[in-house]
Amino acid sequence: MKTWKVDIILAAALIVISVVSFSDSRNYPDIASHFPVRLSIVLGILALVLLVKSLIKRREEAMFTLTGEQFRVIVVVVAAVALYTTLLGHLGYLSSSFLLMIGMMTILGFRKKTVMVVTALCTVAVVYAAFNLILGVPLPQDFFMAK
């Protein structure tokens, strides 16, 4: 995408953030509001400067390139992690982590099924051992975990 177009979208997003942040923080009592209110205003001003600057300069070179396929894969990865986080509280650590490993490798294009399952099992086992069994860090309870 062209730099100036991206910058305009960014500036618009920042203005929205600063308005939301301003309207929320305005209602805070006295001292609590000083900092956030002033920061929201500064953010708004800076965003306007960015907006004006990108309109004047119109830098045509590409800010970044992102193909449709790439965008899709990012969305899928985000969805996978979000799904994992949701499952974590219900399925527990071991099962959801195994699924995450399988899911991630599949999304990234790994094709050897057996290797995938073995790697997933081993990685989950090793990470679980390191965190929970050796260091004693609590992880979400799982059907497979020792009570």
């Binding site: 986080t85 991630m104 990234l108 979400p140």
Partner: peptide, 26 residues
């Protein structure tokens, strides 16, 4: 690369959880 990345993802979520013992952190 695929395996390594999946493993990094797992380490990240586990670590984020472990820091405060909470799913919110993830």
């Amino acid at each position: 690369r695929e395996t390594l990345t999946a493993a990094i993802a797992l380490l990240c979520v586990t670590g984020a959880f472990a820091v405060g013992n909470s799913i919110f952190n993830v």
